[in-house]
Simulated assay, not measured.
Amino acid sequence: MKIEPDQSTQARFDAGTHVGELAQQRWPGGVLIDAPYWDVDGALRQTLDALRQTLDALRDPDCSAIYEAGFKAYRTSVRADIMLRVGDHQWELWEVKSVLNPKEIHAVDYAIQRAVIQQWAIDSNFPLQIVRGGILHLNRDYIFDGGALELQELFTEHDLSDTVDDYTNEVQNSFVDAAAVIDDANPPPILPGPHCSDPYGCPFLGTVCEIPPHDELTLLPRIGANRAEVWHSEGIHQLDQLDPNSDDLNVIQSRALRGHVTGELQVGNGLKKQLDSIGYPRYHLDFESTGSWMIL
């Protein structure tokens, strides 16, 4: 049993789905594998048909791309966001992310997909080679002019072709570790903690395992789980135990902690001068609150 996503989480999922659909329109005329993600066998059958159709019709632009292709190897199922045919049995593989800056975990996700697809091709004796690919993400420099979206400009490519092999050992170990957990009759003796939400939230938290107590140290801006774990190892478990003047904190974190400890409103020394330079009327736009609406 898993927890259904709340409205906020579902909104992020919907935004990600919309970005993926826009990315597909960047290369129109492809074949969509529309089998539900839980129908692994159905997705594989559709993907095989699409691949054969593409390879049999090299000059047919309608078969030049595959969206949501499904593969299975290493007891792991993946769905490839976009595959582009670039030659005989040669494909590009692009993982679409609705982010401005790809992270390390995104590169690992891509490496896992690539490894599964290549092993599937070997297991199936199917001629398929991934020759290029990476993360397709939103372009920070794109400016929407109010008209139709310029899809070639909306996205930018983060090519991982030259670095994806650096993740080979990590990916292979993840397959082995996951299989060991699945095959073990007993659940792993790991208590819930920060790892339950990093890098992704666990949908089973609170159902098959208890929700860990809230770690108030993580209330500080941009304090990661690793930093909090170091403090815990030093016997620091509450914000009141931290020093606002500590070198471990940046300016923003120190200001937030000082406000918590003193209970006083924290105002930057240069704020009044900056506001006076703006004049009236004044408007405030919270980018974090509106960002997900920019392309919906």
Rank of each mutant, 00 (worst) to 15 (best):
N169H: 14
S292D: 12
R282M: 09
Y110Q: 07
P244D: 01
R52L: 09
P102M: 12
G134D: 04
G201N: 06
S292P: 03
S277I: 06
R140F: 03
A15H: 13
D39G: 01
E264A: 13
K273Q: 11
R222G: 04
S174R: 15
G259N: 08
R12H: 12
D247Q: 15
L275W: 11
V96S: 00
R114H: 03
G224E: 10
Q53M: 07
P221G: 13
T207H: 14
S77D: 04
G134T: 06
Y110K: 08
L58K: 08
P244Y: 06
T47D: 14
H195I: 07
D41L: 09
D162Y: 07
D56C: 06
E4M: 10
M83R: 01
T290N: 01
Q129H: 12
F155S: 03
V96D: 01
E104S: 12
Q253M: 08
E157R: 10
S8A: 15
D123M: 01
R114P: 00
W293N: 15
A121N: 01
A11S: 12
A107V: 03
D215M: 02
H137N: 15
A121H: 01
W293R: 15
Q24R: 06
N173R: 14
I182D: 13
Y283T: 09
F204G: 04
E92Q: 14
A43M: 10
G70Y: 04
T156D: 08
R75W: 08
Y110M: 05
R255H: 03
I117L: 14
G291D: 06
D62T: 01
H137R: 08
E4K: 07
S64K: 00
V176A: 11
H237P: 02
A148Y: 09
M83P: 01
Q274F: 12
P189S: 05
L205C: 13
V171N: 01
E216H: 05
A225I: 10
A111W: 03
A178H: 05
P213F: 03
A148L: 14
D286Y: 10
G42S: 08
G87P: 12
Q266A: 05
G20I: 00
R227N: 04
V116C: 11
R45G: 01
A57V: 04
W120T: 00
W38M: 04
I105Q: 12
G20H: 00
Y37T: 14
L84P: 09
R79C: 04
W120I: 00
L217N: 03
V267A: 09
Q53Y: 08
E4R: 11
N125M: 09
L32V: 14
A107E: 14
A57H: 15
H137W: 08
H106I: 02
